[in-house]
Structures are given as C-alpha cells and as structure tokens.
Design a protein around this nucleic acid. Structure first.
Ligand SMILES: [Mn+2]
Ligand SMILES: [Mn+2]
Ligand SMILES: [Zn+2]
Ligand SMILES: [Zn+2]
Lengths: 133, 133
DNA sequence: ATTCATTTTATATTAATTATAAAATTGTAA
DNA sequence: TTACAATTTTATAATTAATATAAAATGAAT
C-alpha cells in the first residue's frame, strides 16, 4: 500500500504529516483517539501540532478514507477501514476488535419508507484473552 | 406510572427535581440531551442547576432506570427505556426513532469465547416524514 | 428546636474541540 | 533562481461539555 498514492487518489495532497498520520492509522489498526495519534507521532515529528491531527482526520473523514468510531461518550476514535463493520470493546483491556457483520440479516420492519444511510453496531464485554487469564 | 414510586423501588429518593427530570424523560420520549432537559425544566423550576441535571441522570443510569444513547460524537442523550433496542436518527429533522431489533439474529462467529454484555445499534438516514415532504 | 444526612446550587476547573491568524512550506511562472 | 500565490502547519485563544468542590438548602429524626 503506497500511502502517498492512496491520499492522491482521494484528492488529498500527501504532506509529510498527513502521510505519517495515515500510516499510523493503517499500520496500527488500533482505533486510536486524536491524543493517541499525537502522542505516538510527536516523538518523530517534534513540531507536530495537535490541531494538525484534528484537521487531518477531519479531512480524511470528509474525503472518505477514514471513519469515526464512537463507542464511549467521551472519546472519538478513528479507523482506516471505511467498509461497514462492527466493533467489540473489551471493558478489561480496552482493546477494540473489528467484527464482520452480516448486515443483510438485520431487518427493521418499523423503518419501511425510511432511507437508511449508515448502520453502526458496537458491542461491549470481555474479550477471550481477558477471560482466560 | 407513579414516578415517585418508580424512583423509590430503584433506591432513589424522589426529590422534586428528580421527579420532574424523570417525568420529562418518560413523557417526552425524545432522547434529550442534558441541555434540552435543563432548558425545558428551568422555566418551571427557576432555581434548577445544570449540575443537578447531570448528577440526576448519572444517578438514574447507575440505578438502572435510564440509559444513554450515543449517536453523534458531541452529545450524549438519555432514554427512559432501558430494555435493549435500536435507534434511527434522521439527518433531516434530527428526530431519533426507537426501533425494535431481534438481537438473536445477530451472530458473531469471531466472538467465540467473548462475553458480550451490551449490544448497541444505531442507524442514520432520512425518515419517512422528511422523505415525503 | 437541634442535629445530621442528603440534595441542590453556585462556582471553579478540566479537557476535548474549534476558531483564528501568523509562520512555514510547496508549486509555479517569470 | 527568484518572486509570488496557494496551501499547509503551527501557536494561541476561545468555546463547550462535563466534572469537582464546597456552601446553602432541604428534610427527616430526635
Ligand atoms: Mn474498525
Ligand atoms: Mn430509545
Ligand atoms: Zn480484553
Ligand atoms: Zn426526519
């Protein structure tokens, strides 16, 4: 995956900061918050500003190469996967797992004549690793 | 529904403010934010403080008579319905519809040996009313 | 009426996000 | 190469939701 090209094909100029932010998202796949991204990159990019992280993620979302994940009230997370999928957050370790979901099995008879644009599913509980230790 | 009794049976002292806040939640069924609740009640309870609304809702959630609804990043909404159900938010009118969901039809083969405590589903799009006008 | 626990309120603080404008960078035309 | 314009990044300030704290009000029990 050539990140600069990926940005270019989505009408985003591949600046150094933008490449590094997307690279982090894409390689870690950890659904990070703005703060997590900033803290992980600022060591290698000492001049990095948190505003840039905010601006860049907003741009990524607008251009459709990043999605947001809202599970807890107080934090927005970001995801390099934009295809529709579900999430499971472990209350113990905090890890957020991607889960495949067969959205076609979900039928909402109350929503006839409604136009559904987005379907979000997230679960909470304890992951297998935390349960077995 | 006797609200004072409802609070009492859930170990909550039915103060005037608490009764009014729950009454609003229960009668409006509009998934309001703290701000919406405050603005609607402060006319009749001029001394009401927003801190009280926050404290009361936190208490309601802790005691299990209210649930939170997180659809947008930037606002927490509250719901007097605590049984598991889904939500549909209309992008046009902003109304949040309750929807029944057959959660049993959702199977997550990736989550074997995971303990699932909560399942949240919310949709976005346009409601029938907004589509036909 | 006095005491004590609880609840409400006013105020201050925290922390995430957005707004604004200056500085730095990049690309392009002369 | 230089000059210029557009874009991007940065520093700073402002906004806002939510929490923390402590004083005031309330209400029951003695
Ligand atoms: Mn994901
Ligand atoms: Mn609801
Ligand atoms: Zn875990
Ligand atoms: Zn609508």
């Amino acid at each position: 995956m050539n990140i600069a090209n990926h940005l270019l094909t989505h009408d985003i100029k591949p600046s150094y900061q933008r490449i590094k932010i997307f690279e982090y998202l894409y390689s870690e796949m950890n659904h990070p918050t703005v703060d997590v991204i900033y803290k992980n990159l600022v060591d290698n990019i000492p001049t990095l500003s948190k505003t840039t992280v905010y601006n860049t993620l907003k741009l990524f979302v607008d251009k459709g190469i990043t999605s947001t994940v809202t599970i807890e009230d107080n934090e927005v997370r970001y995801d390099a996967i934009v295809d529709n999928h579900g999430h499971f957050k472990c209350d113990d370790c905090g890890h957020i797992y991607d889960i495949e979901i067969d959205f076609s099995s979900l039928l909402y008879n109350e929503l006839e004549n409604f136009k559904i644009d987005e379907t979000h599913i997230h679960l909470k509980g304890k992951c297998n690793k935390c349960l077995t230790k």
